[in-house]
Design a binder for these strands. Sequence first.
DNA 1: ACCTCGTTTCTACAGTTGTAGTATCGCGGC
DNA 2: GCCGCGATACTACAACTGTAGAAACGAGGT
Lengths: 199, 199
Amino acid sequence: MTDRMDLLADAAIEVVAAHGMRGLTHRAVDAEAGVPPGSTSAYFRTRKALVEGLVQRLADLDDAEITTARLDHLAVDGPADVDRLAEGVAALLDHWLTVGRSRSLARFACLLEATHHPELRTILAHGDRPRAQARAVVALAGSTDPDRDSRALVAFVDGLLFDRLAGAGVTTAPPPGTPESRDQLRHAFRAALLGVLRG
Amino acid sequence: MTDRMDLLADAAIEVVAAHGMRGLTHRAVDAEAGVPPGSTSAYFRTRKALVEGLVQRLADLDDAEITTARLDHLAVDGPADVDRLAEGVAALLDHWLTVGRSRSLARFACLLEATHHPELRTILAHGDRPRAQARAVVALAGSTDPDRDSRALVAFVDGLLFDRLAGAGVTTAPPPGTPESRDQLRHAFRAALLGVLRG
DNA sequence: ACCTCGTTTCTACAGTTGTAGTATCGCGGC
DNA sequence: GCCGCGATACTACAACTGTAGAAACGAGGT
């Protein structure tokens, strides 16, 4: 709502990204935001309120972002279109892995949290908008079951994101932000899209 | 190590699945395991030890499971093989979503945790074994870059799993365990595999 | 200058959690 | 029967966290 609340919610996102849900305390947010101790507790009286504020802030930030990064106008009816779309999604993933890294981590943490706190689910309609975009794409491409296919496609993209954020494998991925990373992501998404389209 | 430790670690997995990492306390584990209060604190003196024990237990359980569910012997050189493999993976996913639901949730929570606790990463070499299996599959199928492709494939499968566990979309998925759910998973994995193979 | 009211800052306190130390138990050997 | 000792159960306490309420502040009007 107010500036100060946004400031605190942003700090809360950083805290969660850095120390997990467990580290999310009123005092930790105060410290992260550089405000006098007690401030967070004043604006978000209970911890539940703090979590809800954080989730709401994530949703708002996504709303702001989605208007600047629209992909659903990219019709796909030829190989060139597929490549163009893959380029766009790779750029988006790259963004989520670098400047948006904290937000991505916080989002996954909140999604897990929403598993046992249904009230978060309504705020965090995660993937609904991406899914709608994906639905448009696969529908235009002639999918026989756009709901199912778009859901799978979004799940794949989330999987790619999660893997790069938290994947702890032997095979090390190139650091996000590099051309090689972008290339891998583009290639992977292209494969997923093609697989879904001509499944 | 000992029985009692395994019992407690298993209870810890349930606690994390039900209440998240934040709910993981010595006393909560005591309650979940139905042991006298203080027991967990005696076996895992510090909280760090408790989460390490939990992660180790997850890894051990996976080890036990992997020997019973091998998929890498399934060579893929024709459409029939692809279908067979997709059937196997769908069954595995179904298993992870039903009887193994808590473990799957706990695993994702721990992966997120490992982001800021490197010592967990060594224990939880998540996806290494699946990745090795996937690598064998894509290599046999003639991939030009098996490391990259298998990584993508595993990421896709994880994405599917995460989506069914924590996805909070409008498009509701059929409940896990039903034939429709299996069918969707089979279809989705098939698409991913085909996309990766003939990328 | 002074009051008003919303915002911000500070303080207190009860409940929870992490951790370590002490007591009790159960059983195999003397 | 009694002893020793490892495994288990209990207790205590300091630190941390959530929450509420009281104090200080500051801009805008009179």
